[in-house]
Protein backbone atom coordinates (compact mmCIF):
# COMPACT_ATOMS: atom_id res chain seq x y z
CA UNK A 1 0.00 0.00 0.00
CA UNK A 2 1.16 3.52 -0.76
CA UNK A 3 1.39 6.21 1.87
CA UNK A 4 -0.11 9.66 1.53
CA UNK A 5 0.10 12.60 3.87
CA UNK A 6 -3.04 14.28 2.58
CA UNK A 7 -6.24 13.30 0.89
CA UNK A 8 -8.02 16.02 -1.04
CA UNK A 9 -11.51 15.73 -2.46
CA UNK A 10 -11.20 18.12 -5.37
CA UNK A 11 -14.01 20.63 -5.76
CA UNK A 12 -13.34 21.30 -9.43
CA UNK A 13 -11.04 20.10 -12.18
CA UNK A 14 -8.85 23.17 -11.98
CA UNK A 15 -8.09 22.49 -8.32
CA UNK A 16 -7.35 18.87 -9.13
CA UNK A 17 -5.14 19.87 -12.02
CA UNK A 18 -3.22 22.41 -9.94
CA UNK A 19 -2.57 19.84 -7.25
CA UNK A 20 -1.56 17.26 -9.81
CA UNK A 21 1.23 19.47 -11.14
CA UNK A 22 3.34 18.51 -8.16
CA UNK A 23 5.34 15.36 -8.76
CA UNK A 24 4.66 13.94 -5.31
CA UNK A 25 0.89 14.26 -5.73
CA UNK A 26 -1.28 11.73 -7.49
CA UNK A 27 -4.82 11.40 -8.81
CA UNK A 28 -6.75 8.45 -7.43
CA UNK A 29 -8.63 6.17 -9.75
CA UNK A 30 -10.30 3.13 -8.28
CA UNK A 31 -7.06 2.25 -6.46
CA UNK A 32 -7.15 -1.40 -7.50
CA UNK A 33 -3.71 -1.07 -9.06
CA UNK A 34 -2.34 1.94 -7.27
CA UNK A 35 -2.71 0.44 -3.82
CA UNK A 36 -0.20 -2.26 -4.71
CA UNK A 37 2.51 0.40 -4.95
CA UNK A 38 4.67 1.39 -2.04
CA UNK A 39 5.18 5.05 -2.99
CA UNK A 40 5.05 7.94 -0.57
CA UNK A 41 2.77 10.67 -1.87
CA UNK A 42 2.31 14.11 -0.48
CA UNK A 43 -1.31 14.41 -1.58
CA UNK A 44 -3.71 12.05 -3.26
CA UNK A 45 -6.44 13.74 -5.24
CA UNK A 46 -9.95 12.34 -5.45
CA UNK A 47 -12.21 13.26 -8.38
CA UNK A 48 -15.25 11.58 -6.83
CA UNK A 49 -17.14 14.82 -6.21
CA UNK A 50 -17.01 16.02 -9.82
CA UNK A 51 -19.92 13.97 -11.17
CA UNK A 52 -17.59 12.09 -13.45
CA UNK A 53 -19.21 8.77 -12.58
CA UNK A 54 -21.83 9.20 -15.31
CA UNK A 55 -22.34 7.51 -18.66
CA UNK A 56 -24.10 9.95 -20.98
CA UNK A 57 -25.47 9.40 -24.45
CA UNK A 58 -26.18 11.91 -27.18
CA UNK A 59 -26.76 11.57 -30.90
CA UNK A 60 -23.12 11.21 -31.84
CA UNK A 61 -21.45 9.51 -28.94
CA UNK A 62 -21.39 8.00 -25.51
CA UNK A 63 -19.44 9.94 -22.95
CA UNK A 64 -18.02 7.93 -20.07
CA UNK A 65 -16.75 9.84 -17.05
CA UNK A 66 -13.37 8.80 -15.71
CA UNK A 67 -14.88 7.74 -12.38
CA UNK A 68 -17.35 5.34 -13.97
CA UNK A 69 -16.67 1.91 -12.52
CA UNK A 70 -15.99 -1.14 -14.64
CA UNK A 71 -19.13 -2.70 -13.21
CA UNK A 72 -21.15 0.30 -14.45
CA UNK A 73 -19.65 -0.27 -17.87
CA UNK A 74 -20.69 -3.89 -17.64
CA UNK A 75 -24.29 -3.23 -16.65
CA UNK A 76 -25.08 -0.11 -18.69
CA UNK A 77 -27.87 -1.15 -21.02
CA UNK A 78 -27.59 1.50 -23.69
CA UNK A 79 -23.87 1.04 -24.12
CA UNK A 80 -24.11 -2.70 -24.33
CA UNK A 81 -27.04 -2.67 -26.65
CA UNK A 82 -25.27 -0.29 -28.97
CA UNK A 83 -21.98 -2.18 -28.91
CA UNK A 84 -23.49 -5.67 -28.96
CA UNK A 85 -22.45 -6.53 -25.43
CA UNK A 86 -18.75 -6.00 -26.14
CA UNK A 87 -18.19 -3.82 -23.08
CA UNK A 88 -19.73 -6.37 -20.79
CA UNK A 89 -17.68 -9.08 -22.45
CA UNK A 90 -14.46 -7.16 -22.04
CA UNK A 91 -14.83 -6.52 -18.29
CA UNK A 92 -16.85 -9.43 -16.94
CA UNK A 93 -13.74 -11.59 -16.49
CA UNK A 94 -11.90 -9.03 -14.41
CA UNK A 95 -11.43 -10.52 -10.91
CA UNK A 96 -14.94 -10.09 -9.48
CA UNK A 97 -17.86 -7.76 -9.00
CA UNK A 98 -16.39 -6.12 -5.88
CA UNK A 99 -13.23 -5.37 -7.81
CA UNK A 100 -15.13 -3.96 -10.76
CA UNK A 101 -17.13 -1.76 -8.41
CA UNK A 102 -13.82 -0.22 -7.33
CA UNK A 103 -11.81 -0.08 -10.55
CA UNK A 104 -12.62 2.91 -12.75
CA UNK A 105 -12.58 3.43 -16.48
CA UNK A 106 -10.30 6.43 -16.01
CA UNK A 107 -7.81 4.44 -13.99
CA UNK A 108 -7.81 1.60 -16.50
CA UNK A 109 -7.19 3.88 -19.45
CA UNK A 110 -4.82 6.30 -17.76
CA UNK A 111 -2.67 3.38 -16.60
CA UNK A 112 -2.29 2.16 -20.19
CA UNK A 113 -1.64 -1.26 -18.75
CA UNK A 114 -0.52 -4.04 -21.03
CA UNK A 115 -3.16 -6.37 -19.69
CA UNK A 116 -5.99 -3.83 -20.01
CA UNK A 117 -9.13 -5.32 -21.51
CA UNK A 118 -10.79 -1.93 -21.49
CA UNK A 119 -8.02 -0.26 -23.47
CA UNK A 120 -8.07 -3.09 -26.00
CA UNK A 121 -11.82 -2.80 -26.45
CA UNK A 122 -11.92 1.00 -26.60
CA UNK A 123 -9.21 1.04 -29.23
CA UNK A 124 -11.34 -0.98 -31.59
CA UNK A 125 -14.17 1.47 -30.98
CA UNK A 126 -11.99 4.37 -32.05
CA UNK A 127 -12.50 6.02 -28.68
CA UNK A 128 -11.38 9.56 -27.86
CA UNK A 129 -9.83 10.61 -24.61
CA UNK A 130 -10.78 13.98 -23.19
CA UNK A 131 -7.93 15.53 -21.24
CA UNK A 132 -8.50 18.54 -19.04
CA UNK A 133 -5.74 20.63 -20.64
CA UNK A 134 -4.81 18.53 -23.61
CA UNK A 135 -8.26 18.44 -25.11
CA UNK A 136 -9.52 15.53 -27.13
CA UNK A 137 -7.04 13.00 -28.48
CA UNK A 138 -7.53 9.63 -30.08
CA UNK A 139 -7.11 6.71 -27.72
CA UNK A 140 -4.26 5.21 -29.71
CA UNK A 141 -2.40 8.53 -29.55
CA UNK A 142 -3.11 8.69 -25.86
CA UNK A 143 -1.80 5.16 -25.39
CA UNK A 144 1.57 6.14 -26.77
CA UNK A 145 1.80 9.49 -24.93
CA UNK A 146 4.13 9.67 -21.94
CA UNK A 147 2.55 9.76 -18.47
CA UNK A 148 2.05 13.44 -17.72
CA UNK A 149 0.28 15.64 -15.20
CA UNK A 150 -2.89 16.23 -17.15
CA UNK A 151 -6.20 14.80 -16.05
CA UNK A 152 -8.16 12.23 -18.00
CA UNK A 153 -11.71 13.54 -17.70
CA UNK A 154 -13.79 11.26 -19.85
CA UNK A 155 -13.77 8.79 -22.70
CA UNK A 156 -15.88 9.38 -25.75
CA UNK A 157 -17.15 6.44 -27.75
CA UNK A 158 -18.37 7.71 -31.13
CA UNK A 159 -21.54 6.19 -32.48
CA UNK A 160 -20.45 5.03 -35.90
CA UNK A 161 -22.59 1.94 -36.12
CA UNK A 162 -19.63 -0.33 -35.64
CA UNK A 163 -20.08 -4.06 -35.37
CA UNK A 164 -17.70 -5.35 -32.72
CA UNK A 165 -16.50 -8.58 -31.21
CA UNK A 166 -14.35 -8.96 -28.11
CA UNK A 167 -12.31 -12.12 -27.67
CA UNK A 168 -9.88 -13.03 -24.95
CA UNK A 169 -8.02 -16.07 -23.68
CA UNK A 170 -7.24 -16.47 -20.00
CA UNK A 171 -5.51 -19.23 -18.07
CA UNK A 172 -8.12 -19.00 -15.32
CA UNK A 173 -11.53 -17.39 -15.63
CA UNK A 174 -10.71 -14.19 -13.75
CA UNK A 175 -7.04 -13.80 -14.59
CA UNK A 176 -5.44 -11.19 -16.82
CA UNK A 177 -5.81 -12.15 -20.46
CA UNK A 178 -3.04 -14.14 -22.12
CA UNK A 179 -4.19 -12.29 -25.21
CA UNK A 180 -7.13 -10.03 -25.98
CA UNK A 181 -8.47 -9.13 -29.40
CA UNK A 182 -11.16 -6.59 -30.20
CA UNK A 183 -12.32 -6.38 -33.77
CA UNK A 184 -14.74 -3.86 -35.21
CA UNK A 185 -16.17 -2.97 -38.57
CA UNK A 186 -18.03 -0.09 -40.07
CA UNK A 187 -18.54 0.86 -43.68
CA UNK A 188 -16.41 3.99 -43.59
CA UNK A 189 -13.41 2.89 -41.59
CA UNK A 190 -13.45 -0.77 -42.42
CA UNK A 191 -11.91 -3.13 -39.88
CA UNK A 192 -10.16 -2.07 -36.71
CA UNK A 193 -8.12 -4.79 -35.09
CA UNK A 194 -6.97 -4.12 -31.56
CA UNK A 195 -4.66 -6.57 -29.83
CA UNK A 196 -3.95 -6.32 -26.10
CA UNK A 197 -1.96 -8.26 -23.51
CA UNK A 198 0.69 -8.98 -26.11
CA UNK A 199 1.78 -8.67 -23.21
CA UNK A 200 2.52 -5.02 -24.01
CA UNK A 201 -0.30 -2.52 -24.17
CA UNK A 202 -2.91 -2.74 -26.86
CA UNK A 203 -2.21 -1.53 -30.37
CA UNK A 204 -4.73 -1.09 -33.15
CA UNK A 205 -4.49 -1.63 -36.90
CA UNK A 206 -6.85 -0.82 -39.77
CA UNK A 207 -7.76 -3.24 -42.52
CA UNK A 208 -9.83 -2.27 -45.50
CA UNK A 209 -10.77 -5.46 -47.33
CA UNK A 210 -14.21 -7.03 -47.26
CA UNK A 211 -17.31 -6.06 -45.34
CA UNK A 212 -19.07 -7.23 -42.22
CA UNK A 213 -21.31 -9.39 -44.33
CA UNK A 214 -18.62 -10.73 -46.54
CA UNK A 215 -15.06 -11.71 -45.84
CA UNK A 216 -13.55 -14.76 -47.45
CA UNK A 217 -11.27 -17.24 -45.69
CA UNK A 218 -8.40 -15.93 -47.79
CA UNK A 219 -9.16 -12.37 -46.78
CA UNK A 220 -9.28 -13.45 -43.12
CA UNK A 221 -5.90 -15.13 -43.57
CA UNK A 222 -4.55 -11.97 -45.16
CA UNK A 223 -5.88 -9.92 -42.28
CA UNK A 224 -4.25 -12.13 -39.65
CA UNK A 225 -1.01 -12.23 -41.60
CA UNK A 226 -1.03 -8.45 -41.72
CA UNK A 227 -1.66 -8.22 -37.99
CA UNK A 228 1.11 -10.69 -37.17
CA UNK A 229 3.53 -8.80 -39.37
CA UNK A 230 2.74 -5.45 -37.86
CA UNK A 231 2.23 -6.19 -34.20
CA UNK A 232 4.97 -7.44 -31.94
CA UNK A 233 4.43 -10.05 -29.27
CA UNK A 234 6.43 -10.97 -26.21
CA UNK A 235 6.70 -13.46 -23.37
CA UNK A 236 5.84 -13.24 -19.70
CA UNK A 237 4.72 -15.57 -16.91
CA UNK A 238 1.40 -16.21 -18.60
CA UNK A 239 2.66 -17.33 -22.00
CA UNK A 240 5.45 -17.16 -24.52
CA UNK A 241 5.50 -15.06 -27.64
CA UNK A 242 4.91 -17.96 -30.03
CA UNK A 243 1.75 -19.05 -28.28
CA UNK A 244 0.45 -15.48 -28.31
CA UNK A 245 1.06 -15.31 -32.04
CA UNK A 246 -0.86 -18.52 -32.46
CA UNK A 247 -3.70 -17.25 -30.27
CA UNK A 248 -3.85 -14.01 -32.18
CA UNK A 249 -4.77 -15.87 -35.34
CA UNK A 250 -7.39 -17.94 -33.54
CA UNK A 251 -9.01 -15.01 -31.77
CA UNK A 252 -9.11 -12.82 -34.88
CA UNK A 253 -10.84 -15.58 -36.77
CA UNK A 254 -13.36 -16.02 -33.99
CA UNK A 255 -14.01 -12.32 -33.83
CA UNK A 256 -14.52 -12.08 -37.58
CA UNK A 257 -16.90 -15.01 -37.51
CA UNK A 258 -18.89 -13.46 -34.72
CA UNK A 259 -19.20 -10.22 -36.64
CA UNK A 260 -20.11 -12.00 -39.87
CA UNK A 261 -22.96 -13.74 -38.05
Amino acid sequence: MFHAKNYVLAQNLEEAWQLNQKKTNKILGGMAWMKMGKQNYQTVIDLSALHLDQIEENEDAFSIGCMVSLHDLETNQQLNEYFQGALKECVRHIVGVQFRNCATVGGSIYGRFGFSDVLTCFMALDAKVELYKGGIVSISDFASMPYDNDILVRIILPKKGKRISYQSMRNTATDFPVLAVALSFDEQEGWLISVGARPGKAVVLCWQEGTSSELSEVQIDNMTAYVLENISFGSNMRAKKEYRQHLCKVLIKRAVKEILK
Binding site: N171, T172, A173, T174, D175, F176, M237
Partner: peptide, 16 residues
Amino acid sequence: DYSNSFMQYKLPTRMD
Protein backbone atom coordinates in the same frame (compact mmCIF):
# COMPACT_ATOMS: atom_id res chain seq x y z
CA ASP B 1 9.81 -16.44 -6.66
CA TYR B 2 7.61 -14.70 -9.21
CA SER B 3 4.46 -16.39 -7.93
CA ASN B 4 4.33 -13.98 -5.04
CA SER B 5 0.64 -13.08 -4.91
CA PHE B 6 -2.84 -14.30 -5.80
CA MET B 7 -2.45 -12.15 -8.91
CA GLN B 8 0.40 -14.34 -10.13
CA TYR B 9 -0.33 -17.65 -8.41
CA LYS B 10 -3.71 -18.55 -9.77
CA LEU B 11 -6.03 -20.51 -7.55
CA PRO B 12 -9.05 -21.97 -9.30
CA THR B 13 -12.13 -19.81 -8.91
CA ARG B 14 -15.65 -21.14 -8.91
CA MET B 15 -15.70 -20.51 -12.68
CA ASP B 16 -12.81 -22.90 -13.27
